[in-house]
Simulated scan of single mutants.
Amino acid sequence: MKQYPIKKYLYSLTGVYQILRITLVLYILAFILKLYNGSDVSSMLVVTRGWSETDAYWTEKSIAIFLILLAVWLFIKPVILNTFLLMVFLIINAIIVYENAGRHFYELSFLSAMAKWVLPLLYLSVYLNLKKPDSGFVPKWLFFLTRFSLFLIFFVHGLGCLWTHPGYIDYIIGTLATFSGSFMKQSIAENILIFIGVVDVIIAILVLIRPWRNVLIWMVVWGLLTSFLRIVDAGIFNYTEFLIRVPHFTLPLVCLLLYKIKKPAFTK
């Protein structure tokens, strides 16, 4: 088998497929770990539906087992059925989290989750495109789908910053305290947050208009940084929050690679 240099491998649909493959597995793993440790599902079943704690517990663990099997199936071969099942789970989970939260700003989490609903579809699309004779070409709709996902992620994050999300303020103050030992006034943190929000919204609009290389690189770096802050702020045991945000920096990377691939030729 011919060996390709790493750069040439990445700038191919095969490389994009592998990145999406790893992203999807890590993303599903985050849900599995959340279910294993106790999630909003059991709370909803007990509080809202009146289930016993035992029934809710085993239901939650059954869903976790289902996701493990689904992750293995998707890793081996994505098909319409397993893609559809994962998308349905993500939609239902987002609704449960939204309804069970009972607090402001969770509509933003619901909108942000919409961007990840297309992740399984994107994964399947790239896989099917690899099977075609002209697999070196990238469909326009596939490229736009990736950009629209990025738009949702960064636009929603920007709105949260502009609305001075309390959790984001805590991240700023907590991160500064962790690294410097000093404490920032909340008013200063709010001003920083508003500035970040403006930048995020601008970046989101730019990627929807045209995927400039520097914009995508910024998204990769910023997505990785904000995801990693979940661990910095709350400790290593908050790793599930990092895993669930892996698409925040891998999707911009995928978009960057697709943009490179599409330059020689771009299907209609």
Results as ranks from 00 to 15, higher is better:
148 F>K: 06
177 A>R: 12
167 G>Y: 04
174 G>H: 03
200 D>K: 05
192 I>C: 02
152 L>Y: 06
162 L>M: 14
145 L>Q: 03
213 R>Q: 11
201 V>M: 11
183 F>V: 15
186 Q>I: 11
158 G>D: 01
172 I>N: 01
198 V>K: 06
175 T>K: 02
198 V>F: 13
157 H>T: 12
213 R>F: 11
201 V>N: 07
182 S>T: 15
140 K>H: 09
182 S>N: 10
157 H>M: 11
190 E>C: 09
153 I>Y: 09
170 D>F: 06
140 K>L: 09
178 T>E: 09
194 I>P: 07
152 L>M: 14
150 L>K: 03
143 F>S: 00
145 L>G: 06
213 R>T: 13
194 I>D: 03
199 V>D: 02
200 D>F: 15
214 N>W: 09
168 Y>D: 14
174 G>M: 02
185 K>W: 05
196 I>N: 05
148 F>I: 13
202 I>A: 12
209 I>V: 13
147 R>H: 06
207 V>T: 14
146 T>E: 07
141 W>K: 10
139 P>K: 07
178 T>G: 03
186 Q>A: 10
171 Y>P: 00
162 L>F: 11
145 L>S: 14
168 Y>H: 11
196 I>Q: 11
190 E>Y: 08
162 L>H: 00
215 V>D: 10
165 H>I: 10
178 T>N: 12
212 W>F: 13
163 W>H: 12
206 L>E: 14
158 G>L: 05
172 I>F: 08
156 V>S: 08
173 I>H: 00
139 P>V: 03
191 N>Y: 08
169 I>N: 05
150 L>I: 04
141 W>T: 11
208 L>S: 07
182 S>K: 10
185 K>G: 12
174 G>V: 06
188 I>G: 04
152 L>I: 15
169 I>M: 11
147 R>G: 08
186 Q>H: 08
162 L>T: 11
181 G>Q: 04
186 Q>G: 06
152 L>N: 04
177 A>T: 13
155 F>K: 03
155 F>C: 12
155 F>G: 08
209 I>G: 08
199 V>L: 12
215 V>H: 00
159 L>W: 06
166 P>K: 01
212 W>H: 13
188 I>H: 08
187 S>E: 14
195 F>S: 10
205 I>V: 15
181 G>W: 02
180 S>R: 02
168 Y>K: 03
165 H>E: 15
193 L>A: 13
194 I>Q: 08
158 G>T: 03
168 Y>C: 02
200 D>W: 05
160 G>L: 07
204 A>G: 08
193 L>D: 02
205 I>P: 00
214 N>Q: 06
152 L>S: 04
145 L>P: 01
166 P>F: 02
142 L>D: 02
178 T>L: 12
214 N>F: 13
149 S>Y: 01
213 R>A: 06
166 P>W: 03
197 G>Y: 00
183 F>P: 00
177 A>V: 05
169 I>W: 00
141 W>S: 14
211 P>V: 06
140 K>E: 13
191 N>Q: 14
195 F>C: 09
194 I>H: 09
193 L>F: 01
138 V>Q: 04
189 A>F: 04
201 V>H: 08
206 L>S: 13
191 N>L: 12
161 C>I: 00
185 K>V: 01
